[in-house]
Amino acid sequence: MTRLQALAPGKVNLCLYLGERRDDGLHELVSLVQAVELADEIVLEPAPPGARSDEAICAGVEGPNLAVTALAAYRAATGWDPPPQRLSIDKRIPVAAGMGGGSSDAAAALRLAAQAAGTPDDPRLDGIAPELGADVVSLLRPGLVLMTGAGEQVSPVTAMEPFAVLVIIVPERLSTAEVYREADRLGLSRTHVELHAMRREIESALRGDAKLPLELLHNDLEPAARSLCPDIDAALQAAGAAGAQRALVSGSGPTVFGVFPGLDPAVDFGALEGYPGARLLAPLTS
């Protein structure tokens, strides 16, 4: 097999509405997930001689890697059975930051495995991705999607009017599971009726001229993330001071982003002196 490469884009949640916990322990969600140009770089190639299983090389990330789990899932679902493979991951997306880096790596691993198997448009990927996690599904075909269910249902959304996102990296890590537990403790979930109403509002706002619905940009998990990581508060204030029309936490945090409508947004980087890694990113289209 030849050496194959792919990008694994990060994401921001333009909105995230949290529903009640289901019988399987997962929460119902309604979220607009936007892939952005900040991306990890993934290489798939045969593992060195002597390797007994698939492996991942990813500097700075320890423990089991979801991208290797994705390869195992693809093998099990399809019968693809080459010798052990190596995934080399050049991390650009911060870890445990609410930008879906690990999930996007897994989605890219699925795309690479399908390409290596000679079926780059393999429809079975849609069945494999939900087994790996909600963000894997939304990043399987990076762009703008409406995510529902517990994240396993995604619908592509037509590109909206131009906008950019200012990403501010908060130098902490948050466990997604811990943030959801804190959300439960704080009673942040919406009823089924409320969640369904929010979905209808979003779908209605995305029809017609597809303007960015600023009034709907909201994250129900934000109070939980802020409770666990108070440094988020200053980052939100900095995004607003830099000129963002909306500033919110991405996913389970702690990354903060600001929304700037238009093709050539004016960003006051002087307001971001405490955040040297802050950068303006373009959204990706499918």
Rank of each mutant, 00 (worst) to 15 (best):
L4D: 06
L4K: 06
P9K: 02
L14G: 03
C15F: 14
Y17E: 02
Y17G: 01
L18F: 00
G19R: 05
G25E: 08
L26G: 08
E28M: 00
S31Y: 01
S31C: 07
V33K: 04
E41A: 14
L44T: 07
P46C: 08
A47K: 09
P48Y: 13
P49A: 15
R52T: 15
R52L: 14
C58V: 12
C58R: 03
G60S: 09
E62T: 15
E62G: 08
G63I: 08
N65T: 07
V68N: 04
T69K: 15
G79T: 06
G79E: 00
D81F: 09
P84D: 05
S88G: 06
I89F: 00
K91M: 10
K91N: 11
A97Q: 06
M99I: 12
G102S: 10
S103N: 04
A107R: 02
R111A: 04
A114E: 11
A114Q: 07
A116C: 10
A116N: 11
A117D: 13
G118D: 07
T119F: 13
D121G: 14
P123I: 13
R124H: 10
D126W: 15
I128F: 10
A129P: 05
A129N: 11
V137Q: 05
V137M: 10
S138E: 04
L139M: 15
V145F: 09
A150F: 06
V154W: 08
A159L: 12
V165Q: 05
V165L: 06
L166P: 07
L166Y: 08
L166N: 05
I168L: 15
I168D: 04
V170C: 06
P171R: 05
R173S: 12
L174N: 05
L174E: 01
A177N: 04
V179D: 02
R181Y: 00
E201I: 01
I202G: 01
E203L: 13
G208W: 12
G208C: 07
G208L: 09
A210V: 12
A210D: 06
L212F: 08
L214F: 00
L221Y: 07
L221N: 06
C229S: 09
D231R: 15
I232V: 12
A235F: 01
A235I: 03
L236F: 09
Q245W: 02
Q245S: 14
Q245L: 14
L248M: 12
G251E: 01
S252K: 04
S252E: 02
P254I: 00
T255W: 01
F257Y: 11
V259Y: 03
D264M: 08
A266K: 15
G270T: 12
A271T: 05
L272E: 10
L272V: 12
L272I: 12
E273Y: 07
Y275C: 03
G277R: 15
L281D: 03
A282K: 14
L284W: 04
L284K: 11
